[in-house]
């Protein structure tokens, strides 16, 4: 099956301005999302994942910062340069978004049914009755039991998992082609998390939508991703198919992240200590010219401090490190991490 490109982000740059400092939240980010595929954006807190998502939708609050450069191509249009009116016909309709905290992302004074119906009525010309009927169908679809009654519930009357299901119902009510999910499972407990992931997967298979999934949880990535983007300090530091990233990580940062995952260990029962990536992420307002991961990198060499590494691509697998070949060779056989 030939896949075609749904969204392409080119050289996106988003800066935030606070207290006279310029925070380079997103620096020269380029990637594309194929129709019906799942792209995972992985990184630590503050690595620019959410800023990237909001930049794509051109919804960075003007009081905080702005997208200073780049293109977001969707259906032949640059989402950063279309009129607000045109943008509103795309958002919620063709591109939808779900958030980390479903409790905060639902309007506390509107019922769930009203909130689904509102999106439907904004984008599709339909009567209130028809919107309500479709809202019920959506709640059924996302697996909320007793949907007819839940339509008239307020968000606080639902459990955390139910709220995220309701949020998904709102986002998918207009059958978008792309769903941007900003850490949708982070606030949920593990069993609910896997239910929600299963649901997203199922809905994706049903509707053929693409998913841009933002997370810091590598086990989630392993479960759902087709393609993985690893972000560090506002830049993409490694990009590849999910197997490439998990079986053969090239960037020292990605290798560190994979080692920092807890896992089950066989044998004598002694548990391995998790190896954390040492140090803290750099101050994005005050980046040095060299590799931004250098201060935390155990393979750092002298030239890392002077020359910014470029993104180097081999067989669809990109890495932003000057010494990745030596590092991968020295490490020998990659650890089986999957």
């Amino acid at each position: 099956m030939k896949q075609s490109e749904l969204l392409r982000v080119e050289n996106l740059r988003t800066y935030f301005y606070s207290q006279g400092r310029t925070v380079r939240a997103v620096e020269d980010v380029s990637f594309s999302v194929q129709q019906g595929s799942t792209v995972c954006l992985v990184g630590e807190s503050g690595s620019g994942k959410s800023a990237t998502a909001f930049s794509i939708l051109n919804l960075i609050p003007k009081s905080m910062g702005r997208v200073v450069a780049g293109k977001v191509l969707y259906g032949g249009e640059d989402l950063l340069r279309i009129s607000q009116r045109r943008q509103r016909t795309i958002l919620g309709n063709e591109i939808a978004m779900i958030f980390q905290e479903p409790a905060a992302a639902l309007n506390p004074v509107c019922t769930v049914g009203e909130q689904i119906a509102e999106v439907l009525r904004t984008h599709k010309q339909c009567s209130a009755r028809e919107a309500r009927r479709q809202a019920k169908a959506m709640l059924d679809r996302v697996g909320i039991p007793d949907a007819q009654r839940r339509l008239d519930d307020y968000p606080h009357q639902l459990s955390g998992g139910m709220r995220q299901r309701a949020m998904i119902a709102i986002a998918l009510s207009c059958r978008p082609k792309l769903l941007i999910a900003d850490e949708p499972t982070t606030a949920l407990d593990a069993t609910v998390q896997s239910q929600i992931l299963g649901l997203l997967h199922e809905l994706q298979a049903d509707t053929g939508m693409a998913l841009l999934f933002i997370t810091h949880d590598l086990s989630v990535v392993a479960e759902i991703a087709d393609r993985v983007l690893v972000m560090y300090a506002g830049r993409i530091v490694e990009e590849g198919d999910v197997m490439q990233i998990f079986d053969d990580p090239w960037m020292p940062y990605t290798r560190g992240l994979l080692k920092a995952r807890p896992g089950l260990h066989s044998g004598d029962g002694s548990s391995r200590r998790l190896s954390a990536v040492p140090g803290d992420p750099p101050d994005l307002a005050n980046l040095s010219i060299g590799c931004s991961f250098r201060p935390r990198c155990c393979h750092a060499a002298a030239d890392c401090a002077y020359r910014p590494p470029d993104l180097e691509t081999v067989r669809g697998h990109s890495v932003r490190c000057m010494h990745w070949r030596q590092i991968v060779e020295a490490a020998g056989e990659p650890e089986a991490v999957l």
């Binding site: 509103r88 958030f99 905060a104 904004t122 986002a171």
Partner: peptide
């Protein structure tokens, strides 16, 4: 608040 952002994301004027 994020429900206002969510509304913006769903194309509300």
């Amino acid at each position: 608040r994020s429900f206002i952002e969510a509304a913006r994301c769903s194309g509300a004027s």
